Simulated scan of single mutants.
Amino acid sequence: MLTLATLGFLLNFWAWSLIGPLGPTYREELALTPVELSVAVAVPVIVGSLGRIPIGALTDRYGARVMFPVVSLVTILPVLFVGLVASNFAMLVVGGFFLGVGGTAFAVGVPFVNAWFAPARRGTALGIFGMGTAGTAVAAFTTVAIAEQFGRPAPFILVAVLLALYAVVAWTVLRDAAGRAAPTGSLAARTWATVKIPATGQLALIYALGFGGFVAFSVYLPTYLTTDFGLTRGDASLRTAGFVVLAVVARPVGGWLSDRWHPVPVLTLCFTVAGAAAVLAALRLQLLPAGTVAFLVLAATLGAASGACFALVAKVAPADKVGSVTGIVGAAGGLGGFFPPLVMGAVYSATGHYTIGFILLAVSAFAVAAFTWGPVRRASRRGA
């Protein structure tokens, strides 16, 4: 069940991330400004983020056996629209809006995996499930190469076919854990009850920086590398894929460390080191070795923090609200990934470089580290 859930997450995330690697191509072919390009790559992120709130609540009600096939099938339509139809900025934004549905698969998988594992193993299990974010790496590794070899529609057609196959397999094989109790009450009432849980807001802030930072770099790094360092599209895509792979591998490590010790010290350390790496990136040193070291450290720490955050969800969220909490926390993570590309595009347009953007990231990381070690640590001790 964990393997099937991770595969579904990976495929939907692959679909969700298809626009980012082609950002430089869209910029040239559609004559997009830096801000327009930032909007195009950010729109799927915000929709996939906000969509996790209702999808998480629906997963609590109907289970992952229903929701994984539904999300996968619905995502096929915008994948084909972007790949085969979109030919201007407006159409790209519309397609990207609905492509965001693929990003909601995360809110389906977390409550599903959480229900299958004992509390002592949930951090590791959720970290393994979180490796489905490798879909972003697959997109970064393959999209440009496939498009150059077989034409721009080719990667979109491939992903659409794989999503259709997965929907059939998930409907046939996937099973929710025994004893799953569907919650009662309306979607709005259950969402409001979840919002009022103190831990929900705390976890949302943590994930907004941890996962949001990962998403922001995964979608905007190709543009940053081609613009600021003059790399080719293929080279930028491969380097971005390396960033994503390291973050993906670090995610179960963060979950495992949280199972062994506790999520709070793991999160505090991750954000402190990430802040230091952001300061290094802001110095605009050579890409080799300083710039590369900065981004690799950011990848490892943001990935581990994402895994540790959901280890903390498993500890503090009520069992019948894990999907709803996941939806809200996941939405915050996606929203955290929405704004940095816009900020980076605006900063570059205004100043001609990205220094201010990295300084803002460093300040945010240090602030969240302090918040985690302070209020979050006290609340987790009270079992909030």
Rank of each mutant, 00 (worst) to 15 (best):
L2H: 04
T6P: 08
I19E: 02
P21I: 05
Y26N: 01
Y26A: 07
Y26Q: 07
S38H: 08
V41M: 01
I46T: 13
L58A: 15
G63W: 04
A64L: 03
A64V: 04
V66G: 13
L77H: 11
G83E: 02
M91Q: 14
G103I: 05
A107N: 02
V108Y: 02
V113D: 05
F117D: 02
A118V: 14
L126I: 05
F129K: 07
A134R: 07
A147P: 00
G151F: 05
L165E: 07
V168W: 10
L174S: 07
G179D: 08
A181R: 15
A181F: 15
T184D: 15
V195W: 10
P198N: 02
Y207R: 03
G213K: 06
Y220G: 03
L238K: 12
G255I: 01
V264R: 11
G275Y: 08
A281F: 14
R284H: 15
L287H: 03
P289E: 02
A290G: 06
G291L: 07
V293Q: 09
A294T: 06
L302C: 04
A304S: 10
S306Q: 08
L312C: 12
V322R: 06
G336D: 05
F339G: 08
F339H: 07
G345W: 10
H353M: 12
I356L: 13
V363Y: 09
S364C: 11
A370H: 14
R378W: 15
R381G: 11
A384Y: 14
